[in-house]
Design a protein around this nucleic acid. Structure first.
Length: 470
DNA sequence: GAACTTTTAGT
DNA sequence: CTAAAAGTT
């Protein structure tokens, strides 16, 4: 038995269903924990909104770990150095962590494991983040999946591991005071929209299963409704694990058969997260490189003013502006609107999807290394499943379909508050007297659209469509 | 059983 | 169009 163990926390900020923590407490008499806000050149730094969430989550984790007798230390810097120095300083004999799946992170962790082994420190790694490991899901010919539906058919037939019980601790210690840089004002304000941490995550799940699941299919696509689970940032930081969610839903389905369809639908959405990690694991640098190679040849427009109008929610297209403002104010955007805003940027504006992905990376509290780039590539058309057609959403018809009375637009774009529902998604089509009556002066109180939807759609089909092969 | 061909679907 | 499974040699 090793006497001194170290748990390196990364995307698994929880005490329940945490195999690395569990193993450390099982095998070691003395357990410490670290989190490193990594500044390694080869690793992508966390975005601003996520970083703010992280810091609050760490404070809560520190208290939960103290109840198990585990002290949490937080460092800034290069993780390879920090881990090695910490193990030497505290005579750590065994290090435990839960795996991460990005190519750079895997190489990084493998190198650290090797160097620790050289120092005589044993390293054990586990799966805390995924329903199944990416190498466990294979097509019949042994390759990885590129299309979601067959991936999901495979995954749902697997035996998903049951969550493990919370570990028995080694008594109780005083929680360390964690010293962290304060948040920028913007991030501080958006955190007011959220309850952070493991307990909040479980409360959120319980509330969703009790109230939201029943109407999930009906409401999940309506951005004005509170119809989604809201678990994404908790999943991002591992405040709750997907296997905990999986089995909680299975349990509900068994108890109430009327919820079977809703439950399956919700689990398939949870499976999209595993699918994104599948792509992250099997493909080359999905945040930087289009999965369809021919997209490397596309000449994206350099249009800084349009990009800025998009970022600020000043495109003059109501549902787009509503989404971008919701993102800025809360660190979150409804999924339907994420698709619409991403389509407008990458297709109508023909701006490189990576610029949009980078903005989401910085501003979403739930931005994760798999879902964010994989979803952007899906919308931009360069994703894993090569569709012969392009998914160019029309933000007007989408708005009319999913926000029919304009409640979502009115909430985030108060300039349009009084506009008739008939024109709430296309104010440029309203007569002058209709606009005047609603107190709107297009071009002054609310922008005229920065792009013509019809001609820009044709431009995108032309630019992204048939030609441009390498 | 591997290699090739056809069918079906793509949130 | 391509991916994946099913069918065929």
């Amino acid at each position: 038995m090793s006497h001194s163990g170290l748990v390196w926390f990364r995307d698994d900020l929880r005490t329940s269903d945490n195999p690395a923590l569990w193993a450390a407490l099982e095998k070691c008499d003395d357990v410490r924990a670290i989190y490193i806000i990594e500044a390694d050149a080869n690793l992508r730094p966390m975005g601003g909104a996520a970083l703010a969430w992280l810091k609050e989550s760490l404070k809560l984790l520190s208290k939960d770990l103290a109840r198990l007798g585990v002290a949490l230390d937080v460092f800034n810097g290069e993780s390879a150095e920090a881990v090695a120095a910490y193990t030497q300083e505290h005579s750590v004999e065994a290090v435990f962590w839960n795996r991460r799946y990005g190519p750079a992170e895997r190489d990084h962790d493998a190198a650290i494991k090797k160097s620790l082994s050289g120092l005589g420190v044993a390293v054990s790694s586990f799966n805390a983040s995924l329903l199944m490991e990416p190498w466990e899901i294979k097509t019949k010919s042994g390759t990885s999946f590129s299309v979601f539906t067959p991936f999901w058919k495979n995954l749902r037939g697997q035996n998903i591991a049951f969550p493990i019980n919370p570990p028995k601790g080694h008594g109780r210690i005083k929680a360390e005071d964690i010293e962290l840089e304060p948040h920028p004002d913007w991030a501080d304000r958006l955190l007011g929209n959220w309850k952070i941490g493991e307990t909040a995550a479980h409360d959120k799940l319980a509330g969703f299963l009790e109230q939201g699941l029943r109407t999930y299919q009906k409401k999940r696509d309506l951005p004005s409704e509170d119809g989604t689970s809201g678990l994404s940032p908790h999943l991002r930081f591992g405040e709750i694990g997907p296997r905990q969610i999986w089995h909680a839903v299975q349990h509900i389905i068994e108890a109430k058969h009327s919820l079977a369809d809703e439950g399956q639908k919700f689990l398939s959405e949870l499976a999209w997260r595993d699918f994104s990690y599948h792509l992250l694991y099997h493909r080359d640098d999905i945040a930087a490189k289009p999965m369809q190679a021919r997209f490397s040849e596309i000449e994206w427009r350099n249009a800084p003013k349009s990009l800025e109008a998009w970022q600020k929610g000043q495109t003059g297209i109501p549902i787009i502006d509503a989404g971008m403002r919701q993102l800025w104010a809360t660190g979150w955007m409804h999924n339907r609107v994420r698709m619409l805003t991403a389509s407008l940027l990458s297709q109508n504006l023909l701006i490189d999807w990576r610029k949009g992905e980078a903005w989401f990376w910085d501003t979403l509290v739930d931005a994760d290394p798999a879902n964010n780039p994989a979803s952007w590539q899906w919308v931009a058309g360069c994703g894993a499943d090569a569709a012969p057609y392009f998914r160019i959403f029309n933000p007007v018809t989408q708005g009319q379909k999913f926000d029919p009375d304009g409640a979502y637009v009115r909430r985030w774009v108060p300039e349009l508050q009084k506009l008739d529902a008939k024109y709430i998604h296309n104010p440029w089509d309203a007569r002058d007297d209709v606009l005047e009556k609603a107190g709107i002066n297009l071009g002054k109180s609310y922008p005229k659209p920065i792009v013509d939807l019809k001609s820009s759609r044709e431009r995108a089909l032309e630019a992204l469509g048939t030609r441009t092969r390498a």
